[in-house]
């Protein structure tokens, strides 16, 4: 783990509320693995006070890219930061995806993204494509066509992309988890496939149910409000079959069958 002052190379609006942030952070870039995240101080003052966690979206030699949506005060302030300025960043943090398991995979690794969940999964697809020559099968869900992102990037990595939108403006009309179910029902040999998923909580819950039903192991990346991001404060926990675990430390990626969803709303 490093704490660095990283120079912003680019902080570009890519869609209505979506921004692509590129920073120069060689130490972190050298160590970051798919599914890990960074904890960023978006301002130099008390507003906001705490850091904001963002997943690693892409890594090139010295640089790290993040993809984020402006959803509140912190991300709004981050979106105003300019190239040439510096951000205090801690990372890489947490345990990422365990991509060792699909080594013997016949079926492509299955990536399931909802909304901003594409951010860390693109890094995973990139990693699988380059280090293991796996072409992932990618399911992307979004509210509507204009909020779909990264489709092209996945395709450039040789991935097959399947799309679901809530309003049917592109691809399957409905939830991405339903699209995944349809796909799995139609596919004969599902053995040794692995699902990697990131997105809103209800989607991850649905993916976990699919994983159980079809007996396909799934790894899911969870989010929770974080204070320290390094495992000290015990704030960002999730209920698992072996008690509470810290999303920032044992996670953010968990095996789906580990998570206890009962008390979820």
């Amino acid at each position: 783990m490093f704490q660095v002052k990283a120079k912003i190379i680019q902080n570009k609006q890519v869609k209505k509320n979506f921004f692509h942030l590129l920073v120069d952070a060689p130490e972190i870039a050298g160590k970051a693995l798919p599914g890990q995240f960074l904890n960023i101080k978006v301002s130099d003052n008390l507003e906001p006070l705490l850091r904001r966690p963002l997943g690693v979206h892409r890594v090139s030699k010295n640089n790290i890219a993040m993809l984020y949506e402006v959803v509140g005060n912190g991300t709004q302030i981050l979106s105003q930061r300019k190239a040439g300025e510096y951000l205090d960043i801690i990372g890489p943090l947490g345990n990422g995806f365990d991509y060792q398991s699909p080594v013997t995979c016949h079926l492509s690794p299955v990536l399931v993204a909802g909304g901003m969940g594409v951010a860390p999964l693109l890094f995973l697809a990139d990693f699988l494509a380059h280090s293991k020559s796996f072409k992932s099968l990618v399911f992307i869900g979004a509210k509507t066509k204009s909020q779909l992102t990264c489709v092209q990037e996945f395709r450039e990595l040789g991935c097959k992309v399947k799309i679901a939108t809530d309003d049917g403006s592109m691809g399957f009309k409905g939830r991405v988890s339903d699209l995944l179910t349809h796909f799995l029902q139609a596919t004969g040999d599902r053995r040794q496939a692995t699902i990697f998923s990131c997105g809103p909580r209800p989607m991850l819950k649905a993916v976990s149910e699919i994983s159980r039903k079809f007996k396909i192991p799934a790894q899911i990346s969870l989010e929770e409000h974080m204070s320290c991001g390094i495992g000290a404060c015990m704030g960002c926990v999730v209920q698992t079959t072996s008690g509470y675990k810290r999303i920032c430390k044992e996670g953010p990626v968990f095996h789906a069958d580990e998570i206890v969803w009962e008390r979820e709303k």
Binding site: E224, C236, Q239
Partner: peptide
């Protein structure tokens, strides 16, 4: 085991 999340 501590309190039910969200905790902070």
């Amino acid at each position: 085991q501590g309190n039910f999340p969200p905790r902070t």
